[in-house]
Structures are given as C-alpha cells and as structure tokens.
Design a protein around this nucleic acid. Structure first.
Lengths: 157, 157
DNA sequence: TCCTAATCTGGAATGATTCCGAAATGAATA
DNA sequence: TATTCATTTCGGAATCATTCCAGATTAGGA
C-alpha cells in the first residue's frame, strides 16, 4: 500500500521546506480523511473550511497543485469540469461509475510494461492513468426504472 | 483495425437517419483526415471551416457530441480544457507526450479482464480508457537544454 | 523581535463547452 | 417540383472550473 497519511504529508512538507500554514494543515486533513473519495477541489475546499478559520478557493487550488507537483498526491484530469486528486499512489485502475460518479480503485494484477513501449516506440513512460467506466454494484442494485432513461453523460454514451 | 473512414461514417449517418448536411460532411472530412491527431473541437472547427462555406463552433460541438453518442467516434475527456476525439475504436493505450502533446496509439497486448472486475467488485465495465504519459521519441531526441526547465504541466508533475 | 520569501486572498480573467431561441434546410412525400 | 416539418445550424450569452494578479499576511530562520 502507498496511501497518504497526515504524518506522511506533513513530513514531506517539512523535508521540502514548504511552510506549515493552518490552511495547508487543514487541506492535508481534508485530503487524508477523504482520500478514498478521490476528492475534487470544491470538496477539499469545503472540508478544509471546516477545519480552519480562513481558506480561500484560490489557496486550495494552489495548494493542491503544489502538492501534486511535489508528488505528495496525484492529480487526475477528469470529468471535463471537475478534476480530482487521489491519495493512492499505487498503480491501479479507477473504476468510474457513470451513474453515481463514485470512483473505486482496482489494483492491477498485470500491467502493460513501460519497457516494452520504450523498446517498441521509443516513448518513455513517466506516469500512467487508467479508467474503466461502467456501473458500480450499488447502482446496478437499483430498480431498473431508476436506471432507465439516464444518460451517462452528454457526449460519450 | 477499426479506424474511421469517410464512407464508413457517412454510411452510419444514413443508417441512423441523421441528415447529411454540408457542415457534417465537412466535419467528417476533418475528422477522418486528422484521425491520427486525436483532434480537439477547435482543430476540427478550423479544418471543417476550410471545407464548407459555413460552420459554427456550436455546430462542431453539437456534431462531435452527436457522433460520439452514436458511437461513430470516441470522446476523450482530457487535458483539462481541451478534450479530444479519436477515430481509433480499437482498445489501446494513448501515449501522451508531456512535451509536444502528441498522442500515439499503443495497441494493448493483454488487457485487464472486465470479467474479473465484475466478479470481484460487481462493477460492470462499459468503456475503458488508458493513458500513459511521458516523452515521445522525437522529444527525447531534442538537445537536453531544450528539455530542461520545462514543466510538463502546471499541476501534475 | 525582525525580516523576507513564501503564502494567502478576493476578485477579475480565461477559455472550453453548453444553452437557447430563432432562422435555415435536408429529405420524405404529395 | 412544391410542401412540410423535424432536424440542424447559428451566434451570442451563460456556465463553470480553474488560473491569474497584485496587494496583504505570515511562517519560521536569524
């Protein structure tokens, strides 16, 4: 496992010489406590706001960007207008439910070898990202009527 | 292979009862002729505009959305503010170069079995998407100085 | 306690995408 | 060929996540 923890993140901030501001600590908390949700900036903002007197959305964006850049968390470009961040740095597939939006991590048993790609195409892989879209167990358990007539997204049926 | 072709797309439009307007034909051409580029809406708009008297960006968006919804092309949610569409419907990995932005298709030799996921998690996969980020051969061939100091993106290092 | 680079902030700006009502037009039909 | 109308197109406004900015604040070393 390679999940973010409060201590781990704070330790890394110290190592990298980044200041420990109340805003950052609040964001760290929000991040860790919601790590399984693949939270977006808005959620982190809302959660962080509960934990400190002042935080602005600008700060949340800047901080998450900084964290991602430093490799503390992973940035997911997603969902058109709602990016997400994740604390699971392990290689895995994100299973994205088209109905409820929930994201489930699925550990990859065998992955495509970056070495093969480098050899074949000369392309050096630095980062991967995989998503399978579909319907999660909970949503499948819903009565049919509820599922029917629901467009998954505007565009990509 | 399962690449889009002009005849194929037009045939499908007919089958599905969609009208063949000059705008759509121009978009079809733009799509087919740039299929290896994973073009975004702006590019298609620019290319389509060369091929017909009138096209609006709204129309391009609507049309690409319609095509994707009908399964003629695949919609890629991407790049924060610049989505892409692709004509390669085959299962593959998109190799995204962090420097020049080029996207190379890499055919998947062995993929993760949706059946396994369904059995283990009850998650039914309807659609997949995989991206490996890194540097393409051409960019790696550049002198080091050019590569140095280049941030891949704002956020996700 | 001082000092300064690092941070924070609110609001304006950005830019892709969507929405909307009205005008235009394929193409089926008479 | 003319008629008809559901489909498509259009442009411009609206949306909305994210970024930018310039000034105010502050963490933390000296």
């Amino acid at each position: 496992m390679n999940m973010i923890t409060k201590e781990g993140l704070i330790g890394q901030l110290r190592e990298k010489g980044l200041k420990l501001t109340p805003q950052r600590l609040a964001i760290v908390d929000a991040l860790v406590e919601n790590r399984h949700l693949h939270p977006g900036a808005r959620l982190i903002y809302a959660e962080a706001a509960k934990r400190t007197k002042t935080v602005s959305l600008s700060t949340v964006y800047a901080t998450l960007g900084e964290f991602a850049q430093q490799g503390l968390i992973k940035f997911l470009e997603f969902d058109r207008m709602d990016n997400r961040y994740e604390g699971n740095l392990e290689e895995h597939i994100n299973l994205v439910c088209r109905r409820c939006g929930k994201i489930i991590d699925y550990h990859i048993p065998t992955s495509i070898e970056p070495k093969d790609i480098a050899r074949e195409l000369g392309f050096v892989v630095t980062d991967a990202r995989m998503e399978y879209y579909g319907y999660c167990r909970d949503c499948l358990a819903q009565p049919k009527e509820v599922m029917a007539g629901e467009q998954t997204r505007d565009q990509d049926g």
